[in-house]
Design a protein around this nucleic acid. Structure first.
Lengths: 395, 395
DNA sequence: GTGAAAGCGCTAACAG
DNA sequence: CTGTTAGCGCTTTCAC
């Protein structure tokens, strides 16, 4: 800036005025300054500007994993709102690790972001208190923090959504409904489990722990859990899955568990020549991409399936037929849910709305809105597509 | 920092030393300083630090859309590499708009990011020259810039991948192969079209423009293009799609175009009771999620399909049967490709590796590696799953 | 209209 | 081991 001033033959301050479109600069002078800027390729250093002015016009976004479609939708929404508010966004994936979340948040705070949108991995956000005290605003999205911190929060109606989904299965005649959820330390997983229990209670159905499995949505774990349930004396006729990744893993598990069905004439599709889901698919073709693009999973379905060959397959209930006729409702919508056969019935959240709502709330706070702490709950939406309307199988 | 110094009864510089873990501070003094820091809730201002030291320990990432699984995978990879290098990352989605890309890049530069990873939307990056001159390093990923700028670039083997995919269809007996690509202004779309032509040439097959359609991967456009091709006198027996979104749109188009098939006994699956892809799906259930989570599409398949009812459906070739028997290979892998029936054969790129490679190259540059400009090409990988191995239909 | 001086919070370069 | 001074690039304040 000094150089520009010298080149244009004006004082530093005049350059500053021109650069910031401040009024009260002679047009000719301004033009001279602009030429000098052009000549020298000068660019204002926003870091220095920020240091002086106080506000950084940037926010931090901490999510679980950008590569997860749910969070990438949320990210995009936050990004768009930020752009509209003239703000840039630092993005960081915590990978469900509270420690990493903390590091990211503190790093963003050290950069003096104006605010934060956080999808928390842990519950203890005591470390945030000083930052909030120092004036950094934060909005929690998708999950709340512990009661110690009183901050704006935007959640989905997790329990209600699960209740709706399970009630839907009950309405279609199911009495033995399995629940496959994410790790029980995760807030949304617990909430959805609660919704599951509420729906059972409301229908006067018993809660059977052997029909419930909570854990990370890894293929091997999900396949094992499903195999175990299908081998029960009283196996489930329907399945409610607690999130998108688990739904997909469960579908793959069903594909595996119903493979090599001796008589491909179950109550639903199949019986085709080349390949059908849960029918005689050719596993040699599944390839490394079966975990989907962006997948970080290291477990391969093939590995587990082959190590168990002949295990569940010869269960006394005929796991294959059960697997092939299981009704399914999943929490979270996902791409291509409608193109599977049957199409997958889901309880959909709206990640974009979630991100937008959280970011807009944040910017309202930054704009000075100082009302009481807000706790917003977003609705979920049941989308019947076929898999959730299948009747209970009877053998 | 001043306050901390005063509270601890030391000089400013000593606080700085403690905060930065610099050696040469008496343990007792350091402890006193730490207590003052704790007491006052002091946090170092990294912005000021950066101003003084020169390096910001942050990079900028400009992609097309974080919500696209390809780019969200790339993002995650860049993020991880950045974290490993102690850097934070500003993320911005250009939405395929060169103007917005430019604004994002310049905003990042104004913040003095150390470097940039850019998936360019346009070709003219003249605006970058001064920034590069000013010492900001940039790596282009997925797409190159025009020849005017000589910068490090990491690409996939787009032409080679398309060639492989089309050759695969040819090897399975197809002679009439359609190509459905993204907007022809996009580098990767052009490259893949070239690969398509090369594969045809290599097999001595003619290039028929009526089998090629380039444009945005919107459902309405893709459905219309497919309907038009299937109504040709010599319709295609196979389809090569130019990217993930287009593949998905094409599959939905086939579902639409083969719906209400009077005799559900085509050469491939189907014939099931409830719902099968390309079979008699119940459109009333497709719901708002048919564009998948995170989808920004405003067009709804239902709208288009109903406006054309009875149009292509009564084409003299029986579009339905053609649609139901079309072989498909898609560029880009996507989640659940293996669970569709038939499973979808793809030419897979590796977005994670792309992001990692680009980011690692960037950090090597930032670390001082000053070799000649690098142009890295990443391989693609054919994954046969069923849809690409279907024989040509004969009616 | 324009400019000079002070200082945002920090660290580099020197003292002691 | 500790402290002083200068200055990163900018904006604010106030004077001309």
């Amino acid at each position: 800036m000094n150089d520009v001033a010298a080149t244009a033959g004006v004082a530093l301050k005049t350059v500053s005025r021109v650069v910031n479109d401040e009024p009260g600069v002679n047009a000719a002078t301004a033009e001279r300054v602009r030429q000098a800027i052009e000549l020298l390729g000068y660019r204002r250093n926003d870091g220095a500007r920020v240091l002086r002015r106080g506000r950084t016009a940037s926010i931090g976004l901490v999510i679980e994993d950008v590569a997860d479609p749910f969070y990438s939708g949320l990210s995009r929404a936050v990004e768009d709102v930020a752009l509209r508010n003239g703000s840039l966004v630092f993005t960081g994936s915590s990978g469900e690790d509270p420690q990493r979340e903390r590091e990211l948040v503190l790093a963003f705070c050290a950069r003096r972001v104006d605010g934060l949108v956080i999808v928390p991995a842990g519950y203890d956000h005591g470390y945030l208190a000083p930052e909030l005290h120092a004036g950094i605003r934060a909005v929690f999205a998708d999950r709340p923090t512990g009661p110690a911190l009183d901050v704006d929060t935007v959640l989905c109606d997790n329990a209600g959504g699960a209740r709706t989904g399970v009630a839907h299965l009950i309405a279609h005649g199911h009495r033995r409904i399995a629940f496959l959820g994410d790790n029980a330390v995760i807030f949304t997983a617990k909430e959805r489990l609660s919704g599951y229990r509420e729906a059972l209670d409301a229908a006067g159905l018993p809660y059977d722990p052997s029909l419930v499995s909570m854990g990370p949505p890894e293929q091997a774990r999900v396949t094992a859990a499903m195999a175990g349930m299908l081998a029960l004396d009283h196996p489930p006729t329907a399945l409610f899955t607690g999130n998108g990744q688990t739904t997909v893993a469960a579908l793959r598990a069903l594909e595996i568990l119903s493979a090599r069905d001796p008589e491909p004439n179950s109550s639903r599709g199949g019986g085709s020549a080349s390949a059908s889901p849960r029918g005689p698919a050719s596993p040699r073709h599944s390839g490394p991409a079966s975990s989907g693009p962006g997948g970080q999973e290291s477990s391969r379905e093939g590995g587990w399936a082959s190590s168990r060959e002949g295990g569940w397959a010869s269960s006394r209930h005929g796991g294959q037929r059960l697997a092939a006729s299981l009704a399914i409702v999943g929490f979270d919508d996902f791409q291509l849910a409608d193109l599977l056969s049957p199409s997958i019935t889901v309880v959909a959240q709206d990640p974009i709305r979630l991100g937008r709502t959280a970011a807009e709330l944040l910017f309202r706070r930054l704009a000075g809105e100082n009302g009481p702490v807000e706790r917003i709950q977003l609705p979920t939406h049941l989308i019947p597509r076929g898999s959730g309307e299948l009747p209970p199988a009877t053998f």
